[in-house]
Each structure stands twice: as C-alpha cells, then as structure tokens.
Amino acid sequence: MADPSRFPEAGLGLDRGSTPPTPRWVKAFAAVVVVLVVLWLALHLTGRSLGGPGSHTPVGGLGGDAPFGHRGPAPLEGGHG
C-alpha cells in the first residue's frame, strides 16, 4: 500500500468537506431578491401594495362608481367650497 503522505496530489478529489466558494453573481442575485421581498412585505403590510383589486382606487375611496372627472362632493349652494 502506498503512503498517502508521499503522494499528496492523489487525494485531491477525495476531500468531500471543502466546497468551492459561492460565485459573486449568486450572492448579488440573492441580495437583490431579499431586498425585493422585504420591500414587497413592507408595502403589503402597510396597505400600499403594488397591484391587486384595489390598486386603481383613488385615495378618497370613491371606487369605480364615481363619474369621470368627479373630484368629490359638490359644494353647498351659495358656498365657496
């Protein structure tokens, strides 16, 4: 039997404990994904989502029943707004 200390290059492929380092692009991609998930979660929890059923509703909550160009309740007669 050969002495492994005499032929160190013979055991190079057998070491299963070491793995190659993670490429930089994988780390950057993971960081971008984490940032986007945190941003989505923050927007979702604050009610300011990026899409969905209520995304086109005006801030006043008039919904889709308001006529085009309607900006709120009409001023009272004789009033100045």
Rank of each mutant, 00 (worst) to 15 (best):
D3N: 05
P4Y: 02
P4H: 06
P4G: 01
F7E: 14
F7L: 14
G13N: 14
G13W: 11
L14S: 15
L14Y: 11
D15A: 15
G17Q: 14
P20T: 14
P21Y: 00
T22D: 11
V26H: 02
A28Q: 15
A28N: 10
A28R: 11
F29M: 12
A30Y: 05
V34Q: 12
V34M: 14
V34G: 13
V38P: 02
V38K: 04
V38F: 12
W40S: 00
L41W: 05
L43Q: 03
L45E: 08
T46L: 09
G47C: 06
S49F: 01
L50S: 05
G51C: 06
G52Y: 07
P53S: 10
S55C: 05
H56S: 13
H56N: 07
T57N: 10
V59P: 07
G60N: 07
G60W: 03
G61P: 02
G61F: 00
L62C: 01
L62P: 04
G64N: 09
G64H: 04
G64Q: 00
D65V: 03
F68Y: 03
G69K: 00
H70Q: 03
G72L: 00
P73M: 03
P73F: 01
P75F: 04
L76W: 10
E77V: 09
G78Y: 07
G79V: 03
H80E: 12
G81F: 01
G81Y: 01
G81P: 03
G81Q: 07
